[in-house]
Amino acid sequence: MTDALKSLLLARALKEGFSAMRITAPDAIPQASARLAEFVAEGRHGQMGWMAERMAWRGDPSALWPEARSVIMLAESYAPKENPLPLLQKRDHGVISAYAQGKDYHDLVKKRLKRLGRWLIDQTPCEIKVFVDTAPVMEKPLAQAAGLGWQGKHTNVLSRDLGNWFFLGAIFTTLDLPTDAAEISHCGSCTACLDICPTGAFPAPYQLDARRCISYLTIEHSGPVDEDLRGLMGNRIYGCDDCLAVCPWNKFAVAARDIGYEARHGAPPLAELVTLDDAAFRTRFSGSPIKRIGRNRFVRNVLYAVGNSGDPGLRQVAQALSEDPDATVADAARWAATRL
């Protein structure tokens, strides 16, 4: 019964729009707790205090929900239609990470997970919980334990079938389903993702220091960014795709199936973004994951990009914000004006 149910579940998952599905057990990542503790002890989590506060649950999925017997891991492609790296040369435009170009993936993936979960409950009595990135669940180690892919040298999950442009979702269930074999690394001697990182955020292969990661700096980090890092951020104003975009496994990337992931923000002119007030920011990025960082942090990022643009025509727009009510924005504006 369980093998047949698993086959039906996979077919249903693909029908719902997921790109791949594998299953593991809640206790399949015993090494995760120690690795997380080391990461936090070294301070590499930066200001992400929630990693430290909920380590017990994050490091042991079976502690999060003791009744769970299986973890269904799902991948959903958001592969961009074009390589985002050339946009870095348009220095007077802001580069937004491919995953944030469309609608908020939290909403899209969670709705799909819930539909799949309801289908599973209709097939056989069980309980489920669905997770997409916002709960203390270590999706990446679970994905590797399930055989969905492996954590590459850039610490993101990649797959021989999908490349690395995909989101992860998890369904915990009380059903005892057949598990899949764990995946191993297929990175070989390749170091492309490590070599391209503009800030040197990888102390070693398979290790990340978030404090130097542009994705972390533009999204999670509040307050001013260290001045020695600002110049390295280039025109990246929300996230960074460098280590993902350069991965050779992307030759196997599959097209995103949900039109919600289609790019709607593009690479806007910096002069257009730097003048956004709170209301205009919220309107422009309604329904986008960008909205959650707020106007002040976003404009801070834009001003760093302005300072890196090399365009003296943008000096005046930076100066106009040098007395902004937000101290961090004002600091970024003065830095940008001085750079130009």
Rank of each mutant, 00 (worst) to 15 (best):
M1W: 12
A4Q: 15
S7D: 14
L10W: 14
A13G: 09
E16K: 09
E16M: 10
A20E: 15
M21C: 14
M21V: 13
R22Y: 04
A25W: 05
A25S: 15
A25M: 08
A25E: 14
A37C: 05
E38Q: 13
V40D: 06
R44Y: 12
R44F: 13
H45S: 01
M48H: 01
M51Y: 13
G59T: 07
P61T: 05
S62F: 03
E67L: 10
S70A: 12
A75E: 01
E76N: 06
P86T: 02
Q89S: 14
G94P: 12
L108S: 05
V109K: 02
G117E: 08
G117R: 05
W119Q: 08
L120S: 07
Q123H: 02
C126E: 06
K129W: 07
K129C: 07
F131P: 10
D133A: 05
T134V: 13
M138H: 13
E139K: 01
P141W: 02
A143Y: 06
Q144L: 09
A145G: 12
A146G: 10
W150E: 03
W150S: 07
Q151N: 12
T155H: 04
L162D: 08
N164K: 02
A170M: 04
L175T: 09
E183V: 00
C190T: 04
A192C: 14
D195M: 04
C197L: 08
T199I: 11
R212K: 14
S215G: 12
Y216F: 13
Y216V: 00
E220R: 02
P224V: 13
M233Y: 03
A245R: 06
W249K: 03
F252K: 14
V254L: 13
D258R: 06
Y261V: 03
A267G: 04
E272K: 13
D277M: 01
A280S: 15
F285L: 07
F285K: 09
F285C: 03
S286M: 12
S286R: 13
G287M: 08
G287A: 10
I290P: 02
R292L: 09
I293M: 06
R295T: 10
R295C: 15
F298Q: 09
R300I: 00
N301H: 04
G313E: 14
V317Q: 07
Q319W: 07
Q319N: 09
L321R: 11
S322P: 04
S322G: 15
A333P: 11
A336K: 03
A337L: 02
